[in-house]
Simulated scan of single mutants.
Amino acid sequence: MKQFWNTLKRYAPWLILLLIIDSFSSLLLWLSSVQAFASLVVTIALASLVLFSVIVLVLYFKEQHKRAIFRDFLMEPDEVNTEKLLSAVSQQEREQLQVLVSVLEKKQSRIQETEEALRDYEEYVEGWAHEAKTPLSLLTMILDNRADEIPPSLHAKLDYVRSQFQEDITQMLYYARLGSSTKDYRFEALELKDAIEEVLEDYAPLLEEKQFLIENRLQDETVYTDRRGFQFMIGQIISNSIKYSGAEPKLTVSLKHTGEMDILTIADNGIGVKNYDLPYIFQKGFTGDSTDSRKKATGMGLYLTKKMADDLNLKIEAESRWGEGGEGVTISIAFPKVK
């Protein structure tokens, strides 16, 4: 309806011109014959209005048809839609549109080349990650089967390196997958305690190196989400707690229920985050102040965690107790309740 009124406003000057002509004709008719003027003036006015209305309607539907063709062309500027558009416009518009078609074809070609390059990049990253897992698996097998032949201090260091390498590969692989157009998520009922204990086991060498105290308060709670994506998030949160741990480090995992949400909290007692840094910790590349513990940070862990949470339709928030008599960071993940 708005478009119709816009069309009417566009052609309003022609209606005014037509009414002026009608008024002039009526004046001449009145001067020549008062009786003829009285009998024909209404007919002239109605005929002019009807003629104008018919012309406006025809032009309106013609513009609607042209707009639909143009919309199809913008959505898919192929040869068929291009030919339809050029045949629906005037010669003057056709010359201008040919320039637009040429520019769009070049941009479409560049987009296709970029998409192909992105697919090649994703395939390369995933292929490299899977290839890198082969020596990593070999190192794991050696550490498991020949632990008696390796000095305990060296075994602990190699296990630490293996865990760190495994985390870096996983982070890179998920970074590539999050940008992919295809997702392979599988949503299912997930036992929280078992899923988190698996992640804690993967990070056991890093946690033991820092002498973490783990307090897992979970019972037999179940949430509905993708297992791999969720465990990746938990792994990044735990890794962040390890990197920024303080003296006598502790990690507390708990769950609380609200009317519409189940909220998982993972709290540490590390160095914490300053108040002015807290709103930005989920941004890509953000590392906060340049203290010694953050100099080697990439700022990717929590960014990927937030991206994964968005993909899984989970709400994630962070709190810190900096300057309130205690320190540390608490990450909350809210799961919508499934009826």
Rank of each mutant, 00 (worst) to 15 (best):
R110N: 09
E115D: 11
E167A: 15
V273S: 02
Q108P: 04
T170E: 08
K274F: 09
D148V: 11
S137E: 07
I281N: 06
E260D: 14
N145H: 14
Q64Y: 08
S53W: 15
R94S: 06
R294S: 09
G328H: 02
E260T: 08
G246Y: 04
S163P: 01
A36R: 10
E317S: 10
P151W: 10
E167M: 13
T114G: 05
R10I: 04
D120A: 10
I142A: 10
V101Y: 08
R110C: 07
E105H: 12
L200E: 02
R94W: 07
T7F: 00
L136N: 03
V89K: 00
Q166G: 14
S137M: 05
D148T: 13
H130N: 15
V41W: 11
F282T: 01
D194A: 15
A176W: 04
F61W: 11
E188Y: 00
I20V: 15
T291L: 03
M75N: 14
A247L: 07
G179V: 00
E83R: 13
V42S: 14
L178W: 02
S53G: 14
D144C: 03
V58H: 08
D120Q: 12
L213V: 13
D168G: 02
K157M: 13
E113F: 09
K106M: 01
S137P: 02
Q92V: 12
K133T: 08
Y175D: 13
M233K: 04
D72K: 14
I169L: 06
L15E: 09
K133H: 13
D310I: 01
L49E: 01
E327D: 14
N275W: 13
E93D: 04
T252R: 10
L200P: 00
A147E: 14
E131C: 00
V41K: 12
I196T: 02
Q112L: 05
A297T: 02
Y185R: 14
Y203F: 11
S332A: 09
T291H: 05
I316N: 01
E105L: 08
Y124R: 14
E327T: 15
V58N: 09
R71C: 02
A247G: 06
S290F: 01
K337M: 00
R294T: 04
L143V: 07
W128E: 11
E327C: 03
R10K: 14
V42I: 12
V99M: 11
L314V: 07
R227D: 12
K250D: 06
N6W: 07
I266F: 05
K250Q: 13
L178A: 02
T140C: 05
V199R: 06
L138Q: 10
A334Y: 04
A189G: 00
Y174L: 03
I44K: 07
L312T: 06
V99K: 12
M308Y: 08
A12Y: 12
N6Y: 04
G326K: 15
A12W: 15
D194S: 15
T252P: 01
A68R: 14
K9P: 05
E208L: 12
K193S: 12
K193T: 12
M172P: 00
I237H: 01
L206V: 09
I271S: 08
Q3M: 06
Q112V: 05
G323K: 07
I237R: 03
T7G: 04
K296H: 13
E191H: 10
Q164N: 09
L192C: 02
D184M: 13
Q164K: 09
A12Q: 11
D72H: 10
E93T: 03
K66E: 10
G235V: 06
L264K: 01
